[in-house]
């Protein structure tokens, strides 16, 4: 099914294996007195499936918003395939497909209308949009609900339709914030297949998640973020060493508390 998806346009030249899809240089953001992101520098290699993990409130969403042109950073730079997101936003946005977390959609449109809208806003040709919308809806198992208003979708369906909107223009870099949250296991597997074949054809995917298992399974690179700084970054094997990613994550982030205090919770 994933073959129905358009391959990323203009795959990175094969003779530059070291090409970087996303490069963050000292990104920082402060909200009032709280420093949400404290100078993050990261290189996401082109053609990688990159996981961004961190505890709640670590600054994942803020970082990704700044990297994708949704939130102006206080300091630092974000380059998408060498294009500065904040100096040449239009050029960078053509290369980018994003799925933000915790935002609304134009949910009084039908699913089909919403994805078409995303394509038309990018100035794409009507027939190309129409063809890709059908492909995407079928691949994401939404064809039966194409005419339902997005406001009536379930949480998982909403995620999927937002993902379809991010894929419509065949970007070279996909930045997905919590793409698997509230998506059912079957759809999640389908999405993973789609993303894997997208990476295999030369695209780059960045996903944020706090499900370590999933990241260890699907990603080849990972960065651990906590309190707005990068604690570790590299290939999954480099970061996790001998243990599981989850153990390494807990070791890096800390904060595990034992359940001793809740003795009254034992029902026996």
């Amino acid at each position: 099914m994933s073959s129905q998806l358009p391959p990323p346009t203009d795959p990175p030249p094969a003779h530059r294996p070291e090409a970087v899809a996303l490069s963050l240089r000292g990104l920082a953001k402060r909200f009032g007195s709280k420093i949400a992101v404290n100078g993050i520098s990261l290189d996401v290699p082109a053609g990688s499936f990159y996981g961004l993990v961190g505890p709640n409130g670590a600054g994942k969403t803020t970082t990704l918003s700044m990297a994708t042109g949704l939130l102006r950073p206080d300091f630092g730079q974000a380059l998408v395939h060498g294009v500065d997101v904040w100096r040449s936003p239009l050029e960078a946005k053509r290369l980018l497909g994003i799925l933000p977390d915790g935002v609304r959609l134009f949910d009084r449109l039908t699913g089909e209308q919403l994805v078409s809208y995303a394509g038309l806003l990018r100035g794409m040709d009507r027939s190309v949009v129409a063809g890709r919308v059908q492909d995407l809806l079928r691949a994401l198992d939404l064809a039966g609900d194409a005419g339902t208003l997005v406001v009536d979708y379930s949480a998982g369906m909403t995620k999927k339709i937002a993902l379809a909107s991010a894929l419509i223009h065949a970007p070279r870099l996909l930045v997905l914030d919590e793409p698997f949250e509230s998506v059912d296991p079957v759809s999640a597997a389908n999405i993973r297949d789609i993303l894997k074949s997208y990476v295999a054809s030369g695209g780059t995917v960045i996903v944020s998640s706090h499900v370590m298992d999933l990241v260890q399974r699907v990603c080849d690179h990972v960065a651990v973020i906590a309190a707005g700084t990068v604690l570790a970054a590299g290939t999954v094997d480099e970061v996790r060493g001998n243990g599981s990613l989850e153990d390494r994550f807990v070791e890096l982030v800390g904060g595990r508390s034992t359940a001793e205090g809740l003795s009254w919770l034992r029902t026996s």
Binding site: T110, E112, Q113, L120, L121, G123, G144, D145, G147, T148
Partner: peptide
């Protein structure tokens, strides 16, 4: 909710395929 399959793009199908016409179609909807 009753499931509805697609095929009807409404105003998006009637207005030209340009970004501003798409915005107009969204507004009208």
């Amino acid at each position: 909710v009753t499931r509805k399959s697609g095929g009807n793009l409404g105003w998006f199908g009637r207005l030209p395929a340009t970004p501003s016409a798409a915005v107009a179609a969204r507004s009208l909807t």
